[in-house]
Amino acid sequence: MSRTAVVIFPGSNCDQDALWALGPDATPVWHQEEHLPADTAAVILPGGFAYGDYLRAGALARFSPIMADVRRAADAGMPVLGICNGFQVLCEAGMLPGALARNADIAFHCQTVSVEVTDADTAWTAGLRRGERLRLPIAHGEGRYWAPDLAGVRVAFRYAGENPNGSLESIAGVSNRAGNVVGLMPHPERAASEILGGTDGLRIRGAARAALR
């Protein structure tokens, strides 16, 4: 059986939500582990405030022991998804291009937004259609995507309509060149049940499953 590993940093707070949304084929991995479980087929870095987001969001988590193995796995082509704080960690670790700065209006934003899929060829969007829109919750204070140069940046998701944080070109998520490492500010795991307002997030999980086969 192949599994999705959800890394828990001290201060992660969406780890249990991701595990719940992914169901029984997901497994938690404590940040102090040196190795991902042998049957790991994909890795998720969840949302939260790893190390309190002190210094900068995501800046301290990249030094956690597990990150060396996550980087090795990513280099070998394993799908890696960073959600919100996980996206910030991936940028800080240099596994994704760019950086996430303080929201343009300084305030934390928790709301549901429309997100457009702009690249359907990454490991995490392969089951989706380019141009299709998902309704996904966001909740962040430092989500303004910024890069000195967008040449070579694969944009996976853009905010459709309101740009809630002043991101460059409304960018909500990007991938690495190879397309196996993806980061996005919206929380797909929060759109995984009608009781909670929608199930669009499950389509990203579905896409990842399709890509894994």
Binding site: N13, C14, Q16, D17, W20, A21, G47, A107, F108, H109, C110, Q111, P137, A139, H187, E189, R190, A192, S193, I195, L196, G197
Partner: peptide
């Protein structure tokens, strides 16, 4: 006020 609060973490808020 409430947009500044994360009111959905823990994925259990059924009436926001």
């Amino acid at each position: 006020v409430y947009r500044q609060y994360d009111h959905q973490v823990q994925t259990a808020t059924a009436v926001l």
